[in-house]
Amino acid sequence: KKVLATKVLGTVKWFNVRNGYGFINRNDTKEDVFVHQTAIKKNNPRKYLRSVGDGETVEFDVVEGEKGAEAANVTGPDGVPVEGSR
C-alpha cells in the first residue's frame, strides 16, 4: 500500500471493538481516517483484543487503501502502546 503520510497524530473518533474498526480524526488536516484493528501495532499489553479508545490520542501512518486513506502502524504518541477501548 502506498504511504501518504507518516507519524501523524490524531484523535480516535470512535472504535467498535466487536467489529474491529473505527475512525481516527487527523490533527493536521482534520480528515477522518479509517482504522482496522489489524493496523494497531502496539496494543495495550493487558488487553486481549486489539483496540483504540474513543477520544484517545494516537500516532499512525496514513496509507492508500481500497476505499481511500486508512491508518497503519497505529501506536500511542511516540510509539508507546495504545490505551485501548475502556
Score class of each variant (00 low, 15 high):
Lys47Gly: 13
Asp78Val: 13
Lys13Val: 10
Asn16Pro: 02
Val80Lys: 14
Tyr21Cys: 05
Ala5Cys: 08
Gly10Cys: 00
Gly53Met: 13
Phe34Gly: 05
Gly68Leu: 01
Val12Glu: 01
Val63Leu: 08
Val80Trp: 10
Asp54Trp: 11
Tyr21Asp: 05
Ala72Glu: 08
Asp54Arg: 15
Lys2Pro: 06
Lys1Val: 04
Phe60Gly: 03
Val82Phe: 12
Ala5His: 07
Gly84His: 10
Val63Trp: 04
Tyr48Asn: 15
Gly53Val: 14
Ala69His: 09
Gly79Lys: 11
Arg50Ala: 13
Lys2Asp: 04
Lys30His: 12
Ala69Gln: 13
Ser51Asn: 09
Tyr48Pro: 15
Lys67Ala: 08
Ala69Leu: 14
Trp14Met: 06
Glu56Val: 13
Glu56His: 08
Ala5Thr: 06
Phe15Glu: 05
Val8Pro: 03
Asn43Phe: 13
Asp61Pro: 01
Pro81Glu: 13
Arg18Ile: 08
Leu4Tyr: 07
Trp14Arg: 01
Val3Leu: 08
Glu66Met: 09
Asn19Ser: 13
Ile24Ser: 02
Lys47Arg: 13
Glu70Trp: 05
Glu83Trp: 10
Val62Met: 05
Pro77Thr: 12
Glu83Arg: 15
Val17Lys: 12
Lys67Ile: 04
Gln37Phe: 15
Val74Gln: 01
Phe60Thr: 00
Gly84Ser: 11
Val62Glu: 03
Glu56Leu: 09
Lys41His: 09
Val62Leu: 07
Ala5Arg: 03
Thr29Cys: 01
Tyr21Lys: 00
Val52Ile: 15
Lys13Ser: 06
Lys13Tyr: 00
Lys47Asn: 13
Phe23Trp: 10
Ala39Phe: 03
Tyr21Gln: 04
Ala71Tyr: 02
Pro45Cys: 15
Leu49Asn: 12
Thr38Glu: 07
Gly65Val: 01
Asn16Arg: 03
Glu31Ala: 05
Lys42Thr: 15
Gly10Gln: 04
Arg86Asp: 13
Val35Tyr: 06
Ala39Val: 03
Asn43His: 13
Asp32Phe: 00
Thr57Asp: 07
Gly79Gln: 11
Ala39Glu: 08
Phe15Leu: 03
Lys47Val: 10
Val63Gly: 01
Val58Met: 03
Asp32Asn: 05
Asn27Asp: 10
Asn19Tyr: 10
Val35Asp: 04
Gly79Cys: 10
Asp28Cys: 00
Ala39Leu: 01
Val58His: 03
Arg46Pro: 11
Asp61Arg: 01
Arg18Asp: 09
Glu70Gly: 01
Glu64Val: 12
Asn44Ser: 11
Val12Leu: 07
Lys30Thr: 05
Gln37Glu: 12
Pro77Val: 14
Asn73Asp: 07
Phe23Lys: 04
Ile40Ala: 02
Trp14Ile: 03
Pro77Arg: 11
Leu9Tyr: 07
Asp54Ala: 15
Asn27Ile: 08
Asp54Ser: 15
Gln37Lys: 15
Gly79Ser: 11
Thr29Arg: 00
Asp78Leu: 12
Lys41Asn: 09
Thr75Pro: 01
Val17Ile: 11
Asn25Arg: 14
Glu59Asn: 03
Gly10Trp: 00
Val62Ile: 13
Lys7Gln: 08
Val35Trp: 08
Leu49Gln: 14
Leu4Pro: 03
Val58Trp: 05
Asn44Thr: 10
Phe15Gln: 04
Lys30Val: 02
Val33Gln: 02
Asn25Lys: 13
Asp54Val: 15
Pro45Thr: 13
Lys2Arg: 10
Asn73Phe: 02
His36Ile: 01
Ser85Phe: 10
Asp54His: 15
Ala71Asn: 01
Ala72His: 09
Lys30Cys: 09
Asn25Tyr: 07
Leu4Met: 06
Pro81Gly: 14
Ala71Val: 02
Lys47Gln: 14
Ser85Ile: 10
Val35His: 04
Lys13Glu: 03
Arg46Asn: 13
Asn44Cys: 12
Lys47Ser: 14
Asn19Ile: 15
Gly79Met: 10
Glu70Ile: 09
Tyr48Leu: 13
Pro45Leu: 12
Leu9His: 09
Glu66Ile: 13
Lys41Thr: 13
Asn43Ala: 14
Thr11Cys: 07
Lys13Phe: 01
Thr11Asn: 04
Ala69Met: 13
Pro81Val: 10
Lys1Met: 07
Glu66Gly: 07
Lys2Ser: 03
Val63Glu: 04
Asp78Tyr: 12
Thr57Asn: 08
Asp61Ile: 04
Ser51Trp: 11
Glu83Lys: 14
Lys47Thr: 13
Gly22Phe: 01
Asn16His: 05
Ile24Tyr: 00
Asp61Gln: 07
Gly22Thr: 02
Lys7Ala: 08
Ala5Phe: 07
Val63Asn: 01
Ala72Pro: 00
Asp32Arg: 00
Gly79Glu: 14
